[in-house]
Design a protein around this nucleic acid. Structure first.
Ligand code: ZN
Ligand code: ZN
Ligand code: ZN
Ligand code: ZN
Lengths: 130, 130
DNA sequence: TTATCATTGTTATAATATAACGTTTGTTAT
DNA sequence: ATAACAAACGTTATATTATAACAATGATAA
């Protein structure tokens, strides 16, 4: 059962940076940004990232090894994620489309696999770049 | 226009290993497997992998940083890929489902982005593991 | 031939991520 | 309050994944 989540100090620092960013952030870029706050080691970043992902506060963009804040309030703990990614400017936008989400959540593989989670990444050129 | 592709020596070696494998292979695991064939450096592997991906002969499983051979003859140069991934045994299966593919290929983001490509990864437990 | 282009081999290094260990802090139960 | 436990922390070291840079070779075509 999901309880009201209280963030630890490091988790809050990392989340703030990611939320303020315009695009996806990489772990070491986050690290360099928080060294003034006394966080010095990759482990501290990765631990915070792991927890934030568990909580559904952020998502990992797998094709970029980078992290974005969750912008969709109804995104249930990263079980069903979809993103549009611009191949030119690197912009990433979280897609919350109920139909898409339902379609994929109910998709069942012929070979008898039952899915718990999916991640979908679209690539192309955003409005600005096309 | 796609021409009949001729593979170079290194490309062929790497493809053979990936095709013979039961599951996804990581770049360095491929490297260790081909050192007897005179390939000694990561660059040689990554270069072959890049070309093979371009040709649509293999795909990268982004969430695992690993590579699988393309099993679906109608998979057009990795423009529309979908996989089911077992979180227990690491099995990966390429999904070729025309409906799914059409649905996603025609999916258009509200914000005006036109997609060229997508990659979808489902996670769960395979038949054996559930 | 000469130019051009893909591929190769090689060394070095960058970028991403985890292991392992001990300490500190926060929570819960008595 | 205090003991017990779990979560988070700080730190050092190391593992894993990926690219840069450069020189040599091989294949293709004007
Ligand atoms: Zn989300
Ligand atoms: Zn763009
Ligand atoms: Zn394929
Ligand atoms: Zn399995």
């Amino acid at each position: 059962m999901a309880q009201a989540q209280t963030l630890s100090r490091n988790q809050q620092i990392v989340l703030n940076i990611i939320e303020k960013a315009k695009g996806p952030l990489k772990a070491y870029s986050i690290l360099f940004n928080v060294q003034k706050k006394g966080i010095n080691a990759p482990q501290q970043i990765y631990r915070a990232l792991d927890k934030l992902i568990e909580m559904g506060k952020i998502h990992k963009i797998e094709s970029k090894n980078a992290f974005v804040a969750c912008r969709s309030s109804d995104c249930e703990i990263s079980k069903a994620t979809a993103f549009s990614i611009c191949e030119s400017c690197e912009m990433v936008d979280e897609i919350s489309d109920t139909k898409l989400s339902k379609y994929l959540s109910s998709f069942n593989h012929k070979k008898g696999m039952k899915f718990k989670r999916f991640n979908l990444e679209f690539f192309g050129l955003c409005k600005k770049c096309k």
